[in-house]
């Protein structure tokens, strides 16, 4: 399957261009995730950063707008680094902090795509609420120091192979030219399409939510309610059992 993947590759990309960043990433991860005595922090960091840089060189496309390119690259690089750090970090608290950084970088990307409200909401929900909750839970669980299970990984080889292959397949798929049919198909089902004069994106988003997706909004609200009750029930039950 993989061979056919490479064999059918389009002229825009050769196997090395696809493979080098992935290989670098794999090597870096292997170095970082080795057993505690063999862990090589600095070569691992170098490899991972190299992988990010290589990916930028081989995969990235420039739009021509310099400011946009620079900002996009910065956010993307920050995000990738933070995500790598989160996976490599052995302490859950630090992992959570790396995660917050990933969220921030993602929010920057959101902002650049004209989704100001989403980016604000994401920061509030994740960085504000979820990360705090995590820290709360971690403290509650009295995680003093690292545990065995934070350091030893589960089947890293299998995960790395499948992850690398998945990334290769995805990148390859993204680089394929879009079929004409799906390019042409732009069904304008949205009754709240933004007009060129629309500058208030939040108002338009609100219109889209409550005009196009009203039922889904209601369902989501019910889901939240159920989740609240479910949380309460489980918490009370487990407390009863613990006693």
């Amino acid at each position: 399957m993989l061979l056919t993947l490479f064999a059918q590759q389009s002229a825009t990309m050769n196997p090395w261009e696809l493979g080098i960043p992935i290989l670098l990433g794999v090597v870096g991860y292997m170095l970082a995730a080795a057993s505690p005595q063999r862990r090589q922090n600095i070569p691992a960091t170098v490899c991972l950063l190299g992988a990010i840089v290589a990916a930028w060189f081989t995969w990235w496309q420039l739009s021509g707008n310099v400011l946009e390119d620079v900002l996009f690259t910065c956010f993307a690089g920050l995000m990738a680094m933070a995500a790598c750090g989160m996976q490599v970090e052995t302490h859950p608290v630090y992992s959570a902090l790396w995660f917050a950084l990933v969220i921030l970088a993602t929010c920057g990307l959101f902002l650049m795509q004209g989704a100001a409200f989403i980016s604000a909401a994401t920061i509030i929900v994740y960085a504000g609420a979820i990360v705090v909750t995590f820290l709360f839970v971690i403290m509650l669980a009295r995680q003093t120091g690292k545990s065995t299970y934070d350091v030893r990984l589960m089947q890293p080889m299998l995960a790395m192979v499948s992850g690398g292959l998945l990334l290769a397949a995805l990148v390859y798929a993204i680089q394929q030219p879009v079929p004409v049919a799906s390019q042409a198909a732009a069904p304008s089902v949205n009754m709240s399409a933004p007009t060129p004069a629309d500058t208030n994106t939040l108002a338009v988003l609100g219109r889209s939510l409550f005009v196009d997706h009203l039922v889904a909004v209601e369902l989501a609200s019910v889901l939240l309610l159920v989740a609240i009750f479910g949380t309460l029930v489980i918490a009370l039950q487990s407390r009863g059992q613990a006693r």
Binding site: Y29, A33, A55, M79, A80, A83, C84, M86, Q87, P92, S95, V102, T106, S147, Y149, D150, R152, L153, M154, Q155, P156, L158, A159, M160, S162, G163, G164, L166, L167, L170
Partner: peptide, 15 residues
């Protein structure tokens, strides 16, 4: 990239 990194973490981390 983000998705694959998430996958990797989900598959390997035990916490």
């Amino acid at each position: 990239v983000l998705f694959v990194l998430g996958t990797l973490g989900f598959l390997t981390r035990r916490n």
